[in-house]
Amino acid sequence: MIINNLKLIREKKKISQSELAALLEVSRQTINGIEKNKYNASLQLALKIAYYLNTPLEDIFQWQ
């Protein structure tokens, strides 16, 4: 199981879903879906999320 901390980290950094989506060149709905565990981010997208949030990938998506 993967624990998804994207919403928590994004909100801590005061970045909206729309802002993050624009940086990543995806839709806001994609970010929303990832945060609600409706969609799994591809490895490429997960790495981009970590880069733009300046946060280690394993802090955003944790295996349990």
Results as ranks from 00 to 15, higher is better:
residue 3 I to H: 08
residue 60 I to W: 02
residue 56 P to A: 09
residue 57 L to E: 01
residue 57 L to N: 03
residue 6 L to I: 07
residue 28 R to W: 14
residue 1 M to P: 10
residue 19 E to P: 01
residue 30 T to N: 04
residue 30 T to Q: 08
residue 56 P to E: 07
residue 25 E to G: 15
residue 44 Q to L: 10
residue 61 F to M: 03
residue 4 N to S: 04
residue 43 L to T: 08
residue 17 Q to E: 04
residue 32 N to D: 15
residue 49 I to P: 00
residue 57 L to Q: 02
residue 8 L to A: 15
residue 14 K to A: 10
residue 59 D to N: 09
residue 38 K to S: 10
residue 10 R to K: 01
residue 42 S to E: 07
residue 45 L to N: 02
residue 21 A to S: 06
residue 60 I to S: 01
residue 19 E to K: 14
residue 19 E to F: 08
residue 41 A to M: 14
residue 54 N to L: 06
residue 52 Y to N: 04
residue 42 S to M: 04
residue 4 N to P: 04
residue 29 Q to V: 10
residue 1 M to L: 13
residue 16 S to G: 07
residue 36 K to A: 13
residue 12 K to Y: 09
residue 27 S to V: 04
residue 64 Q to V: 13
residue 14 K to L: 10
residue 9 I to A: 07
residue 1 M to R: 10
residue 28 R to H: 11
residue 63 W to F: 10
residue 5 N to W: 09
residue 30 T to V: 15
residue 3 I to L: 14
residue 27 S to E: 06
residue 40 N to D: 10
residue 44 Q to E: 15
residue 48 K to L: 09
residue 43 L to W: 13
residue 20 L to A: 00
residue 23 L to W: 14
residue 49 I to D: 00
residue 39 Y to C: 14
residue 40 N to H: 13
residue 10 R to I: 05
residue 20 L to I: 04
residue 9 I to M: 07
residue 14 K to H: 13
residue 13 K to I: 08
residue 35 E to A: 02
residue 44 Q to W: 11
residue 6 L to G: 02
residue 28 R to E: 15
residue 13 K to A: 13
residue 61 F to C: 04
residue 12 K to A: 15
residue 8 L to I: 14
residue 9 I to W: 07
residue 22 A to W: 06
residue 55 T to V: 12
residue 18 S to L: 10
residue 37 N to W: 08
residue 54 N to Q: 14
residue 36 K to R: 12
residue 19 E to T: 11
residue 9 I to F: 08
residue 51 Y to I: 08
residue 40 N to P: 15
residue 47 L to E: 12
residue 3 I to Q: 09
residue 13 K to F: 10
residue 27 S to R: 09
residue 51 Y to T: 08
residue 46 A to S: 07
residue 12 K to I: 10
residue 6 L to A: 01
residue 58 E to C: 11
residue 19 E to W: 06
residue 47 L to H: 10
residue 23 L to I: 11
residue 31 I to N: 01
residue 37 N to R: 08
residue 62 Q to A: 10
residue 55 T to F: 04
residue 53 L to F: 07
residue 21 A to Y: 02
residue 24 L to F: 01
residue 54 N to F: 05
residue 35 E to G: 03
residue 31 I to Q: 00
residue 37 N to H: 09
residue 2 I to G: 06
residue 26 V to H: 02
residue 10 R to E: 02
residue 11 E to I: 12
residue 31 I to W: 00
residue 25 E to V: 07
residue 58 E to L: 09
residue 23 L to C: 10
residue 51 Y to W: 11
residue 49 I to H: 00
residue 52 Y to H: 13
residue 11 E to Y: 05
residue 59 D to F: 09
residue 39 Y to M: 13
residue 54 N to P: 02
residue 63 W to M: 07
residue 4 N to L: 07
residue 26 V to Y: 03
residue 46 A to W: 13
residue 8 L to M: 13
residue 41 A to E: 01
residue 34 I to K: 01
residue 50 A to C: 05
residue 61 F to Y: 04
residue 16 S to E: 04
residue 16 S to Y: 04
residue 28 R to I: 15
residue 42 S to A: 04
residue 12 K to R: 14
residue 32 N to V: 14
residue 56 P to Q: 06
residue 10 R to L: 07
residue 46 A to P: 00
residue 35 E to I: 04
residue 49 I to V: 05
residue 35 E to L: 04
residue 13 K to H: 11
residue 42 S to L: 03
residue 5 N to F: 08
residue 42 S to N: 09
residue 48 K to A: 08
residue 18 S to H: 10
residue 20 L to G: 00
residue 16 S to C: 06
residue 48 K to E: 05
residue 36 K to F: 06
residue 33 G to A: 15
residue 54 N to W: 06
residue 4 N to Y: 02
residue 45 L to W: 03
residue 43 L to C: 14
residue 31 I to M: 04
residue 8 L to C: 15
residue 46 A to Q: 10
residue 7 K to D: 04
residue 44 Q to D: 13
residue 12 K to E: 13
residue 37 N to F: 07
residue 6 L to P: 02
residue 8 L to Q: 15
residue 63 W to I: 08
residue 7 K to M: 08
residue 43 L to Q: 08
residue 13 K to E: 06
residue 37 N to G: 15
residue 3 I to E: 08
residue 25 E to Y: 07
residue 57 L to K: 02
residue 19 E to Q: 14
residue 40 N to E: 12
residue 58 E to I: 09
residue 33 G to I: 08
residue 42 S to I: 04
residue 15 I to L: 12
residue 37 N to I: 03
residue 22 A to G: 11
residue 23 L to M: 14
residue 50 A to G: 04
residue 43 L to M: 12
residue 4 N to R: 03
residue 41 A to P: 15
residue 37 N to T: 04
residue 42 S to Q: 05
residue 62 Q to R: 11
residue 58 E to A: 12
residue 46 A to D: 00
residue 41 A to Y: 05
residue 22 A to L: 11
residue 27 S to H: 06
residue 27 S to C: 06
residue 10 R to Y: 05
residue 50 A to Q: 04
residue 1 M to I: 12
residue 58 E to P: 08
residue 10 R to V: 04
residue 60 I to Q: 01
residue 56 P to T: 05
residue 15 I to T: 04
residue 54 N to E: 15
residue 58 E to M: 10
residue 11 E to C: 10
residue 37 N to C: 11
residue 7 K to I: 06
residue 2 I to L: 12
residue 30 T to D: 04
residue 39 Y to T: 11
residue 55 T to K: 03
residue 7 K to H: 07
residue 64 Q to E: 14
residue 31 I to G: 00
residue 27 S to Q: 05
residue 31 I to V: 12
residue 6 L to N: 02
residue 28 R to S: 11
residue 46 A to N: 03
residue 5 N to E: 03
residue 34 I to P: 01
residue 53 L to D: 00
residue 48 K to P: 00
residue 15 I to D: 00
residue 9 I to N: 02
residue 31 I to A: 02
residue 9 I to K: 02
residue 33 G to S: 14
residue 3 I to Y: 08
residue 7 K to G: 07
residue 33 G to D: 15
residue 37 N to L: 07
residue 16 S to L: 05
residue 14 K to R: 12
residue 30 T to R: 10
residue 53 L to A: 02
residue 34 I to V: 05
residue 45 L to V: 06
residue 5 N to L: 07
residue 59 D to H: 11
residue 9 I to G: 02
residue 54 N to D: 15
residue 19 E to C: 07
residue 52 Y to T: 10
residue 38 K to F: 13
residue 59 D to R: 08
residue 54 N to V: 06
residue 55 T to Q: 05
residue 13 K to Y: 07
residue 50 A to R: 03
residue 63 W to P: 06
residue 13 K to L: 13
residue 36 K to W: 06
residue 18 S to F: 08
residue 63 W to L: 07
residue 8 L to T: 15
residue 14 K to S: 11
residue 6 L to R: 01
residue 40 N to C: 14
residue 45 L to S: 01
residue 28 R to F: 09
residue 18 S to A: 14
residue 59 D to A: 11
residue 49 I to G: 00
residue 15 I to Y: 07
residue 23 L to R: 09
residue 5 N to Y: 07
residue 2 I to H: 08
residue 62 Q to H: 09
residue 11 E to W: 06
residue 42 S to F: 04
residue 61 F to K: 01
residue 40 N to G: 14
residue 8 L to G: 11
residue 13 K to G: 05
residue 55 T to W: 05
residue 38 K to W: 13
residue 12 K to F: 09
residue 57 L to S: 03
residue 24 L to A: 10
residue 51 Y to E: 11
residue 12 K to G: 12
residue 46 A to V: 06
residue 53 L to M: 06
residue 20 L to C: 05
residue 23 L to K: 12
residue 32 N to T: 09
residue 48 K to W: 05
residue 44 Q to G: 13
residue 54 N to I: 04
residue 42 S to R: 05
residue 13 K to W: 06
residue 19 E to R: 13
residue 63 W to S: 06
residue 45 L to E: 02
residue 3 I to C: 14
residue 19 E to L: 07
residue 28 R to V: 15
